[in-house]
Simulated scan of single mutants.
Amino acid sequence: MRKVARTGVALSLVVGVSLSMATQAHAEKKRGDRAAGSANNGKVASQVSHVRITGGGGGGKGTVKLNPKDPNWEAPACWYEPKTTPKELKEEMESLKPKKPKKDKEEEPIIGAGADATELSNALLGQAKNVLDNYYQTDKYEDYNIDQQGKGMFWEGVRNPNRADDPEADACSEHAIWVPNGKPPKSMPLAVSPKILAEYAYEELPIPGTDISMNPEDKQTVNLDTWVWLDKGKFKPVDVTASLDLEDGTHLSATTTAKPTSLTLEPGTYDAKTYPGSGKCVVKNGQLGEEYSVGKKDETPPCGIRYLRASGQNGSYPLKATLTWDISWKGSDGTSGDLPSGSFSTTENVTVKEIQSIVRD
C-alpha cells in the first residue's frame, strides 16, 4: 500500500508539473507587464496566468506591501481562468513524451526499487499521459472537444504568484473544465471575476514607504513642538489594474485604488504630547499634516509631537508612524466595492535634547 501511495503522489506531481511546463511557452507569448504564475526561484510554481497587471505593480523599487486591517483577509491563493482551446490542449498532451533512457533496454520501464531516475520519470509520465488522454478523449469529453473549437475554452487553475507555495493554492487543482463562450461557470466559486482580479491587484499596489517629514528635522527639543507631515506629491491615491483579455473578445478587468486617509503617531514614550491628542492625523485640504514655515512658529501643529523629557545623553525615542490606506475597486462589468483597509508602519529613532532658550527661524 505504501508503494502505491507514493506512486500516486508522484503521478499527480508529474501531471501538474508537465502541464505547467507544456503551457508556459504558450502563455509567455501573451504576457503583459507582469503576468501571474511565473517561475519562482527557478521552480515552476504553476501554469502561467493570462492576467496582466498595469499601473505600477507592488514589486517596484521603494514600494511596500500593505498589512490588511483584517488579519484574516488574504488575496485568493488561486483561481480558474480560460487558458486553452481544444486544439492547444490536445497539442499539449501530445507533447508529453517520455525521455529516452540512458541505456537501451528492451523491457518496459518498471516502477520499483531497481528503476533509475529516467525509467521512473518515463513510467510516471506515461501513466500521466494515459490518464489525461482517457479523461479528455473518451471519459469526460470526446477528442478534446475539437468539434467545439472556437466555441469556448478550457478553464484551468492558476496560482497567485505571491502565494505559489501556499497549500491553499491546491484548491484549484481540478482537471481543465470546458466552458462555452460567454457562459462563465456558476458552480465554480474560484472562477475568475472582477472581484478576484481586484483582490489580486491589492497585493500589487505601488505603496510608498511611510517616510515622514519633520521640523525640526534632526534633533528634537524638550517642550518644542515638532511639526509632522507627508510629502503631498508622494503620498496620493495610487491604483493598479488587473485585466484578462480572452480570445473570444471578452474583457474582464478591475482597478484597485488605495487612498491615504490617516497617519498615526506613537512618540515612543509617555513623556510626550501628540497633536491631535489621539495621535491620529487625518487628511485635511488634501494633505496629511501641514508643512512648517517661519510664519507658523507660534501656531500649534495640526499633526505633530511635543516631547516633555529629554531622551538622555546617548538615548533616543522610537517614533512610530503608521499610514492607513483605504482600498476600493471597480470592475469592467460595473461591479465595485471596498477591500480591507491596509497600513504600513516605520519607526525612526528620535533624539530629544534640553535647551534653555529657543530661537526658531
Rank of each mutant, 00 (worst) to 15 (best):
E204P: 08
L190P: 09
S187C: 06
P184N: 13
N181E: 00
E199T: 00
K195Y: 06
I196K: 07
K183T: 13
L190F: 07
A201E: 09
A176D: 01
S193M: 14
S187I: 03
E203W: 01
G182N: 09
L197M: 06
K183E: 15
N181P: 07
L197A: 06
V192E: 01
A191Y: 10
A198I: 09
V179H: 06
M188W: 06
V192A: 13
I196V: 14
L205C: 01
L197H: 06
A201Q: 06
V179E: 01
P189N: 01
W178V: 04
P194F: 10
S187K: 15
P184T: 14
Y202I: 12
G182F: 13
P184H: 14
A191H: 10
L205Q: 02
P180F: 03
P206E: 10
P184S: 11
P189M: 04
I177S: 07
P180C: 04
S193L: 14
Y202N: 05
L205R: 00
G182L: 12
E203H: 03
S193A: 14
V192Y: 04
W178G: 04
W178L: 03
Y200R: 00
L190H: 08
M188G: 10
G182A: 08
A198D: 13
E204H: 11
I196M: 08
N181R: 05
I177C: 00
K186D: 15
K195W: 06
G182P: 10
A191I: 11
A198R: 00
K195D: 11
P180D: 09
P184W: 14
W178P: 05
L190R: 13
K186F: 02
W178D: 06
K195P: 00
S193K: 15
P184F: 15
L197Q: 03
P206H: 09
Y202W: 15
I177K: 08
L197P: 03
M188A: 08
L205S: 03
E204G: 07
P189H: 04
P180Y: 01
W178F: 13
I196P: 02
I196Q: 07
A201D: 10
S193Y: 12
M188C: 10
S193I: 12
L205E: 01
L197R: 03
G182W: 13
W178H: 07
K183Q: 15
A198N: 08
N181M: 07
S187L: 11
K186I: 12
P194T: 08
E199N: 03
Y202R: 00
I177E: 11
I196D: 03
A201T: 05
K186Y: 07
V179I: 12
L197S: 04
K195V: 05
K186A: 15
V192R: 05
P189K: 10
L205W: 02
M188E: 15
K195T: 05
P185G: 06
V179S: 05
P185I: 08
E204L: 01
P185D: 11
K186W: 02
W178R: 01
L197N: 02
P180N: 04
A201K: 00
G182Q: 09
L190N: 14
W178M: 03
K183M: 12
P184E: 13
K195N: 12
L190E: 10
V192P: 07
S193E: 09
K186G: 15
A191M: 13
